[in-house]
Amino acid sequence: MKYKWKTVLFCVLSVLCISAFFAAKHNAAWYNEPVAEITQIQTRQIGSKQSTRETPEEIYEQSIQARLLNGEAAGKIIELKNRYGYTQMKSEKYHRGDQVFLVTSDGEIQHEIRGRKRDDQIVFLIGAAVLFLLFFMGKQGVLTILTMVINSVVFAIGFQCFMHGKDIIGICNKMVVVFAVVTLLLLNGVHKKTWAAIASTLCVVGLIIVAFESVVHITGEIDYSTVEYLGSIETPDTVFRAEILLSGLGAIMDVAIVMTSGLDELLRKNPSLSLREFLNSGREIGYDIMGTMLNVLLFVFGSSLIPTFLVRMNNGVSMFTVIEQHISCEVYRFLIESIGIVLAIPVSVFGSVLFLRVQFFGRLKKC
């Protein structure tokens, strides 16, 4: 009966997700700006130009017929032109069936494409993620979705507070606490191991901030001239500190809950475990997860920098120059969060001792 209800629920959710996808595909009337669907398209090469690496790049022109989907002129067929290069760095290639936004000037539609309408793709991916979470994880999937929604709302509230003049560091401090408490309590329940993981996470975040401030105090403030938001933000140093608070929080929480859950299970299986055995077990668990988590962090930071590397290296800038002069702040942030992951192991073990087995302190002499 349980599996029957699970199948029925999955089918209902699948229908809802498919319905949402088709609704997003046909929601042009919801937009104030003009939307058109490409009905016919012809592409031809009109020449070539020299790229930044002195290699020829073909240039193409597309003659497009499109049908307006919204506004007073809905249903009207219009002619559009689009040019793009082989690399599609500055403009993209369009296909039949694509829905695009059009440029307007003084309320009049200009026969020029502003960009592709992609909300249907976003809805499809969200629906697929929700279905997979619910089908494979069941109740835990529901809780995972709930935590993501709550954390997204907290992010939005935090940004609004910043726009109203609140201190970004104070906002992020509160957000870190909310993220850690909400995520770990909802996903793991109200248990001693959960409180141990929350305390460990907050302690580690505090430690890496103290470590960063100590290094800055000794060596001087780092150079923020390479950050993307320089010039649009008056205090890039505070924004960078806010990034440190949040960028590695997920990985630190993961390490903390894995450590505390593993040690909690060990105590359940063997309540007579000595303090020395407990600490050794925590160290072994840390050995198993530390390398993987550091590489996960490396892949996350590295993947976000792929465009930076490719664009600059394509313009003749060496990899070492890119690292030294263009992404130094990202490297600092990666190293700081890596230190946080390493610190999360001993801190989580100590937190587990405090929350899971306080009587260990009575056994110190025996060890």
Rank of each mutant, 00 (worst) to 15 (best):
F10V: 10
I18P: 03
A20T: 08
F21E: 06
A23N: 09
A29W: 02
E33N: 07
V35G: 01
E37D: 00
T39Q: 11
T39M: 08
Q40N: 14
Q40L: 08
I41V: 13
I41G: 03
I41L: 15
Q45C: 13
Q45T: 09
S48R: 03
T52D: 11
E58Q: 14
I59W: 02
A66Q: 00
L68G: 00
G71H: 08
A74G: 05
E79I: 10
E79N: 12
G85S: 13
G85N: 07
G85H: 02
Y86G: 02
Y86P: 01
K90G: 08
Y94H: 07
Q99S: 09
L102S: 04
V103G: 02
G107H: 12
E112L: 15
R118L: 15
D119K: 09
F124L: 15
G127W: 00
F136C: 08
G138Y: 10
Q140V: 06
Q140C: 04
G141R: 01
T144V: 10
I145L: 15
F155Y: 09
I157L: 15
F159D: 02
F162H: 07
I168R: 00
L184M: 09
T194L: 13
W195C: 09
A196E: 00
A197W: 01
G206H: 06
L207E: 01
F212H: 07
E213S: 12
T219N: 11
I222H: 03
Y224F: 15
S225N: 11
E228N: 14
V239N: 01
S247L: 11
M253F: 04
V255S: 06
A256I: 01
A256F: 03
I257M: 14
L266Y: 02
R268F: 06
R268C: 09
N270G: 04
E277V: 08
I289D: 02
G291M: 05
L298P: 03
S303K: 05
S304K: 14
P307T: 04
I323Y: 05
E324V: 06
I327R: 00
G340T: 08
V347I: 12
V349I: 15
L356T: 05
R357C: 04
G362L: 14
R363N: 13
K365I: 14
